[in-house]
Simulated scan of single mutants.
Amino acid sequence: MAWFVGQSLVVIVLAFILGVAVGRFSARFGNVSTDAHRQADNAPESNGDELQRIEGIDAAVAAALRTAGIRTIAQLADSDDDAMREAMRAAGLGFVPSLSTWSRQARLVADRDAETAAR
């Protein structure tokens, strides 16, 4: 019985340490500043809705992109990752894991919209 309690205690302590480490990591890189949320709440709906067609772009991210001058799907498709990262940093947004796919997604959406308009 003592062996089982000793082993369980080790597992519990390791799980606690892992939980603390994950919590600190997510607190450092996963936070979205309140200023970015306020910008998103006050931003006009029409431009944000278009950018929000891209997976990973919410209202706060769309507001940050608009502030950086990226207002349309076509502009997003032509943007490079460094410009988008700088827009996120300037808005006080944390790590955005899907950022590297936004330009490709936007290009696909823009091409699909052009095909639909041509019909």
Rank of each mutant, 00 (worst) to 15 (best):
residue 85 R to W: 04
residue 88 M to L: 15
residue 65 L to Q: 00
residue 77 A to G: 05
residue 54 I to W: 02
residue 90 A to G: 13
residue 94 G to Y: 12
residue 87 A to P: 00
residue 69 G to Q: 08
residue 59 A to P: 06
residue 110 A to W: 05
residue 98 S to Q: 06
residue 68 A to D: 05
residue 60 A to N: 08
residue 51 L to C: 07
residue 107 R to L: 15
residue 69 G to F: 00
residue 76 L to C: 02
residue 54 I to G: 10
residue 110 A to Q: 11
residue 103 S to V: 04
residue 78 D to S: 15
residue 69 G to V: 09
residue 70 I to E: 05
residue 78 D to R: 11
residue 70 I to Q: 00
residue 80 D to K: 04
residue 105 Q to F: 13
residue 91 A to F: 02
residue 68 A to Q: 11
residue 53 R to I: 04
residue 85 R to I: 15
residue 91 A to I: 07
residue 102 W to A: 08
residue 80 D to S: 10
residue 75 Q to R: 14
residue 95 F to R: 13
residue 95 F to D: 06
residue 78 D to L: 11
residue 57 I to G: 01
residue 104 R to I: 12
residue 53 R to M: 15
residue 97 P to D: 06
residue 81 D to S: 14
residue 67 T to D: 15
residue 72 T to K: 01
residue 82 D to W: 10
residue 92 G to T: 07
residue 100 S to F: 12
residue 66 R to N: 06
residue 77 A to V: 06
residue 79 S to A: 15
residue 98 S to R: 15
residue 67 T to P: 00
residue 85 R to Y: 04
residue 74 A to M: 14
residue 65 L to H: 01
residue 57 I to C: 12
residue 89 R to M: 15
residue 59 A to L: 08
residue 58 D to Q: 11
residue 88 M to R: 01
residue 92 G to H: 07
residue 98 S to V: 12
residue 99 L to W: 09
residue 103 S to I: 01
residue 89 R to N: 13
residue 51 L to R: 03
residue 64 A to N: 00
residue 82 D to P: 11
residue 69 G to R: 07
residue 60 A to K: 06
residue 95 F to C: 02
residue 94 G to P: 08
residue 95 F to Y: 05
residue 64 A to V: 04
residue 51 L to M: 03
residue 105 Q to G: 02
residue 95 F to L: 13
residue 83 A to K: 12
residue 66 R to E: 12
residue 100 S to H: 14
residue 85 R to S: 15
residue 71 R to Q: 11
residue 109 V to A: 03
residue 75 Q to V: 13
residue 61 V to Y: 01
residue 57 I to Q: 00
residue 77 A to K: 02
residue 93 L to G: 00
